[in-house]
Amino acid sequence: MTAAQADPQIPLAKLPETPLIERPAVADGAALWRLAKDSGTLDVNSSYSYLLWCRDFAATSAVARGADGTPVGFVTGYMRPDRPRTLLVWQVAVDAAHRGRGLAARLLDDLTARVAAERGLTAVETTITPGNTASERLFTSYAARHGATVEREVLFRTEQFPDGPHAPEVLYRIGPLSF
């Protein structure tokens, strides 16, 4: 659950072409799977899971579309069942041709503003593997833009992953948020 190759240091206003950001549709599932696969840093889930995600969690996810309507970035998330005002951000990815323009930050800002308006939102959580500086910057800059604090703790240790070596996942809790 991390951001892939995001660069939140670039001001959002520098996007030369402003992609449309909206809820994903099932038809976007294959493109989201390809973006995750092409990121080179995300844990890629099955293509089936991206189709389901676009169907079942579209209200808590966002897709950025290029001028031709093709997805060029996405953020997926869900509301935590035991914390219904907390959005867990699962994955963030931006196509290589659109990186370095603040699109990941814009996706995250747009999504959380929408979720806050529709469902109420007081916190954002994500996990980041140590050394993923792009994700660390994306989420710490998000917290700074929203005047929130960031708490960190190891959520899953290396030895808890059954499928081979995997870096630990550090939980980032960002809040309280007010919109």
Rank of each mutant, 00 (worst) to 15 (best):
A31W: 04
A96K: 14
A59C: 08
A104I: 11
D163K: 05
N132E: 13
G77Q: 04
D68G: 09
M79L: 15
D82T: 10
P19S: 07
R23A: 15
A143D: 01
T18N: 11
V94A: 07
G66L: 03
A67G: 07
V63P: 02
L51N: 03
T140Y: 11
L121T: 08
R145Q: 09
F161T: 07
D43I: 12
L103S: 02
A62N: 03
P84G: 11
L15I: 12
I128K: 01
S39F: 13
D7N: 15
A3S: 15
D109M: 04
V44W: 06
Y172E: 00
A13I: 12
C54A: 14
Y142N: 07
A105I: 06
P11H: 11
A116W: 09
E125N: 05
T140M: 05
D82P: 00
P24N: 09
A31V: 06
D38E: 14
A27G: 14
P176S: 13
A104K: 01
P168A: 12
T86R: 12
F156I: 13
L107D: 02
Q9G: 08
L32V: 04
W53K: 04
E17R: 08
L138P: 08
Y142K: 08
H98I: 02
T133Q: 10
A116H: 08
A96T: 15
T2V: 03
Y48W: 12
P130W: 10
Y172T: 06
V124H: 07
S135F: 00
L32Y: 08
I21V: 13
Y78M: 03
P81Y: 08
P8V: 03
M79N: 03
E22A: 13
L87H: 01
G164K: 03
P168W: 04
R152G: 02
V150T: 05
G40P: 01
T112P: 02
E136V: 09
E159R: 01
T2Y: 02
C54W: 15
V89W: 10
L155W: 12
S141P: 00
V89C: 09
L32E: 04
A144Y: 11
V89L: 14
D7C: 09
T41N: 06
E159P: 00
D56V: 00
P71A: 09
T129N: 13
P16K: 14
L52Q: 06
A143I: 04
G69V: 05
Y172C: 07
L51C: 01
A123G: 01
T41G: 09
T41V: 09
H146E: 01
A123H: 15
C54L: 12
D95S: 14
D43M: 14
D110L: 01
A144F: 06
L108Y: 10
D43A: 12
D110W: 08
R137M: 15
V63E: 11
V94N: 09
V92S: 00
R152C: 05
A123N: 12
A3D: 10
L108R: 05
A148C: 02
A30H: 15
P176M: 14
W53C: 11
S141H: 12
S47K: 14
T158A: 11
F156S: 00
L111K: 02
